[in-house]
Design a binder for these strands. Structure first.
Lengths: 136, 136
DNA sequence: CGTGTGTATTATGTGATATAATACACATGT
DNA sequence: ACATGTGTATTATATCACATAATACACACG
């Protein structure tokens, strides 16, 4: 288990977990994507400003901006100069995005397991074990 | 889909896929781990020498050495000066290692899916879809 | 006009990664 | 003894991604 000084910080309705095992902007990006995918940030919602987010996360504004620009490239948000960044992806689009991410996660997971020599039976078994232990 | 010039090179019985999306030594390390986990390199087997591997993969010997040292830290191999690097982990130990990696993969996968708001039903469904499409 | 937006620019610093060129320590076979 | 093949260590260099800092700019709104 890697701990590496995990920082948990809240900004508005969101909670971010940051550590040093990955680029900061990627962690912010991924957690923003997940928040939108979950529907936690609905259509039209204004997400925290770059400077506000930067201050809350104790991070440089440039770093937050980097993440936000990737969000826009994803087609999830839209930027309006002088106003802020808003979620503009419609629910159907968001769900499509969410599914795409999920399928990629599935593929990476299955490929990884098969590289270790596990078949479907083993995968199902290990998942059941996790199901028995873990939450949700 | 990321292509990024994937190089596939063979060395002895093994085949390596290298690209530039990750550190080279990590890719070598992970694929060596998988080969051992699969039982493709049995107990006592001498793995290719640092220089041989470096030449085959078109990579600096230091890079290969880095990967090999991590393998030894994993307790999978043992180094004998003047002789080479050998697989010294017994089958039971290898299997324990394989399971540990697999469980970590499962945990990361499940956590990621749950972060996207998917429950067990969704996970099972997406896995079934992949099962229908993909190989093995 | 003042304030709050996102963005751009320039500079600096750090760390991981990879390469190159050598040299060393050790085992083995001849 | 020697040559050869092992892993390893050292030193140097180079590159790149990442993050920060300090400013400045363009725009919207009240």
């Amino acid at each position: 288990m890697r701990d590496d000084a995990v920082h948990e910080r809240k900004v508005g309705p969101l909670t971010f977990r940051l550590d040093l095992s990955q680029p900061l902007y990627e962690q912010i990006l991924e957690q923003m994507r997940a928040a939108i995918a979950r529907g936690e940030l609905p259509l039209g919602e204004k997400i925290p400003s770059v400077r506000e987010m930067a201050q809350a996360l104790r991070v440089n504004p440039n770093t937050v901006s980097h993440a936000y620009q990737e969000l826009e490239r994803d087609g999830l948000t839209e930027t309006r100069r002088g106003q802020g960044t808003f979620v503009t992806a419609e629910p159907a689009r968001v769900d499509q995005f969410r599914t795409a991410i999920a399928e990629q996660a599935v593929n990476e997971f299955v490929d990884r397991m098969q590289a270790l020599g596990f078949g479907w039976n083993d995968i199902d078994r290990l998942l059941d074990e996790r199901k028995a232990k873990g939450g949700a």
